[in-house]
Simulated scan of single mutants.
Amino acid sequence: MERNHQIYPVMALACLIYLASAAFAQAQTSAWSGEGWETDFSQSSIDLSEIISGGPPRDGIPSIDNPRFESADAITDIDGREPVIQFPIEGDSRAYPLRVLIWHEIVNDVVDSVPVAVTYCPLCNAAIVFDRRLDGQTLEFGTTGKLRHSDLIMYDRTTQSWWQQFSGDAVVGALTGRDLKKMPSRIVSFEKFRQDNPSGQVLVPNDPNFRRYGDNPYQNYDTAERPFLFQGELPDDIAAMAHVVVVDTGAEPIIVSLERVRKSAYERNGYTVSYQDGVASALDAHSIEQGRDIGTVVVTKDGADIVHDLTFAFVAHVFYPDVPIIQ
């Protein structure tokens, strides 16, 4: 019986790669356990080698767990062009200024009796609101100090499972594979929010001297050539840091460049993506109020607001590599 002797070196190499990967994963999880994590690292949906340290330790970027608010018409220290996350979009709206979230990344809040996590990852410019309820319990989220694809990895303080902020799914731990429900929100200028909601509630720092609120610690980031702390593949047909809109359709997302939407509204399968100027980038100038205008987008279907995110092209590409970016 003939044997293909050429296959043996290939098999040997594959075995060595597997053993090296397994050894690396074991060393990595041992190191994380040494940091005090009680996460079940035997359960994961990703390659653990994709997770890297972002620098700060767990909760080194502290979430806001007891948020304070003031009426919009009483706020005097936020420039009208500064970006805020408006949630909910209809009704009794609240504003979460990026000047605060850029330093905290997560706000655990309750809005209209619904526990929500209002999140912002500066390295991905991803502002997403999640329903914190899962299986009848309410989760509270903090920052792990870890990144995957330059995106914030959150953790819940109940099971210490690790959650990917951009996708809202648990990627490590007992809740691996579970998803948080995303809720429609919108980035608008503070002036727009105040005009529409003069008595609307605006998030303010618990301690105004805790951080340099109003300053951008990522100066010139959104015009850089490459993302920070990113190890994945960059798109080859659009600049890595170009802004794109990712529309959550419940199936394959629609991804369209901001430059395309600036020219005219984009419509597809009943979804409409339109652009409005007048909103400063939180990731451009040293002072957020002086950031270049990147505007905001409005995404609707049949008149209803749709979950979407205004992020960077490299983020859309690494999380949805098979979905083309419409330009």
Score class of each variant (00 low, 15 high):
221 Y>C: 12
238 I>V: 14
190 F>P: 08
216 N>Q: 10
239 A>F: 03
254 I>W: 06
178 R>F: 03
166 F>N: 05
196 D>P: 02
234 L>S: 04
225 E>Q: 10
188 V>D: 00
262 R>A: 10
238 I>N: 03
255 I>P: 01
176 T>N: 07
236 D>H: 14
183 M>G: 07
229 L>N: 04
231 Q>G: 12
197 N>V: 09
171 V>N: 03
218 Y>H: 13
184 P>G: 04
211 R>S: 07
212 R>P: 10
233 E>W: 05
198 P>F: 07
172 V>W: 02
215 D>P: 02
223 T>R: 13
220 N>I: 08
237 D>L: 10
262 R>S: 09
171 V>C: 07
207 D>K: 08
222 D>Q: 07
213 Y>C: 05
242 A>L: 02
210 F>C: 02
249 T>S: 08
192 K>D: 15
180 L>H: 02
227 P>S: 08
167 S>R: 12
255 I>W: 00
215 D>T: 04
226 R>G: 06
230 F>M: 01
259 E>W: 04
170 A>G: 01
190 F>T: 03
219 Q>V: 15
180 L>S: 04
187 I>T: 12
187 I>G: 03
229 L>F: 08
216 N>R: 03
263 K>A: 13
245 V>S: 08
210 F>Q: 14
208 P>W: 09
198 P>M: 11
263 K>V: 11
187 I>F: 01
219 Q>S: 13
264 S>Q: 14
221 Y>L: 15
238 I>F: 08
258 L>N: 01
189 S>A: 14
257 S>E: 02
240 A>G: 03
204 V>K: 01
233 E>S: 15
224 A>F: 13
243 H>M: 11
179 D>H: 15
170 A>I: 00
219 Q>G: 09
235 P>A: 08
179 D>E: 12
204 V>A: 03
226 R>E: 14
196 D>H: 10
228 F>Y: 04
182 K>V: 03
216 N>L: 07
220 N>T: 10
